[in-house]
Design a protein around this nucleic acid. Structure first.
Length: 291
DNA sequence: ACCTAAACCTGGGCGC
DNA sequence: TGCGCCCAGGTTTAGG
């Protein structure tokens, strides 16, 4: 579901296609998902030019040239889709359909942003866990949701030393899979890429973090980065509902090693991939290769 | 302080 | 055909 690579894909496309446009108005179709009022939007966002999109782990922030911006979390069923105004060249597929071929907007479109040039941003969210709120962007890193996040796996702050110290130290009693999905420890990894990285590193997801050898810790550290980089190149994973800004699916699922592969042959040993529960999450692994 | 499990929400797939 | 049940999942909250 939307994890770091998916949000990174949206951010990059957003900065290419939407940056510089101007907010006009908003249609709030579900007030749980839109955690702001019409009035607040009119006061803080309307008429402002879009400066850029930033990504912090799985959170997207759309900054305007004013003091405020939008903070967006897709959770697992969210879609942020851009539709260029009709009549102008949009430079790519027109995303008028994004959920089972339904035309936008549809039942699960909870917010629509209208931009001054007639283009639109749709926020769809089937399970309504995702949200958008208006935040003051003068000091983004101090915002509650951002401040509590651990380092990004592809940043310099995520060093092997940091990783090793935490895996062996304070957090050593949780399972290694739960640990690498803990956003306060490393931010941006969710269920899909946790499964994939543990497979590549040959580590059983149920292992206690503290029982990993230095060599295993290093392998996992390397593969977390590798898997995420590869997933960004492939524009993310579309298992169920994830699509990019233009409503297109990501390419990673075709390349996935174990995720969603129950009963399929392991890419390394040709044994069968098993599905179990770890920390209440569906977990795919190869019993032969991951020990 | 720590960990686990339920809750949030909805559609889809399954068994009967 | 249709009802009821369980599952998916990121994060928070409640409970142990």
């Amino acid at each position: 579901m939307p994890e770091l690579p998916e949000l990174e894909t949206i951010k990059r496309d957003f900065n290419k296609d939407v940056r510089g446009r101007i907010f006009k108005s908003v249609e709030i179709r579900d007030s749980k998902v839109a955690q702001f009022s019409q009035k607040e939007f009119n006061e803080k966002i309307a008429r402002r030019k879009i400066k850029q999109a930033d990504r912090f782990a799985k959170i997207l922030i759309i900054e305007t040239e004013g003091e405020f911006g939008l903070m967006i979390h897709l959770k697992m069923s969210g879609q942020l889709i851009y539709e260029a105004s009709s009549g102008r060249k949009s430079g790519g597929g027109h995303p008028d359909k994004a959920y089972k071929g339904k035309k936008l907007p549809h039942k699960y479109t909870h917010i629509i942003f209208h931009l001054l040039d007639g283009s639109k941003l749709y926020f769809n969210n089937l399970r309504k866990f995702g949200w958008i709120k208006i935040v003051n962007t003068s000091d983004i890193k101090k915002l509650d949701e951002i401040a509590k996040l651990g380092p990004e796996p592809l940043s310099e702050k995520f060093s092997l030393e940091y990783f090793r110290n935490n895996v062996k130290g304070r957090r050593s009693r949780s399972t290694i899979k739960n640990l690498i999905m803990d956003q306060k420890f490393i931010s941006g990894i969710g269920n899909i890429y946790a499964n994939e990285a543990l497979f590549e590193a040959g580590i059983d997801p149920r292992r206690k973090a503290g029982d990993l050898s230095d060599e295993e810790i290093k392998k996992l550290y390397i593969f977390i980065k590798e898997i995420l980089k590869k997933a960004i190149e492939l524009r993310g994973t579309s298992d169920d509902l994830y699509v990019d800004l233009k409503g297109k699916q990501g390419g990673y699922l075709n390349e996935a090693l174990v995720y969603n592969k129950e009963g399929k042959p392991c890419p390394k040993c040709k044994g069968r991939i098993k599905k179990i529960k770890v920390g209440n999450r569906g977990t795919y692994y190869c019993p032969n290769c991951q020990t």
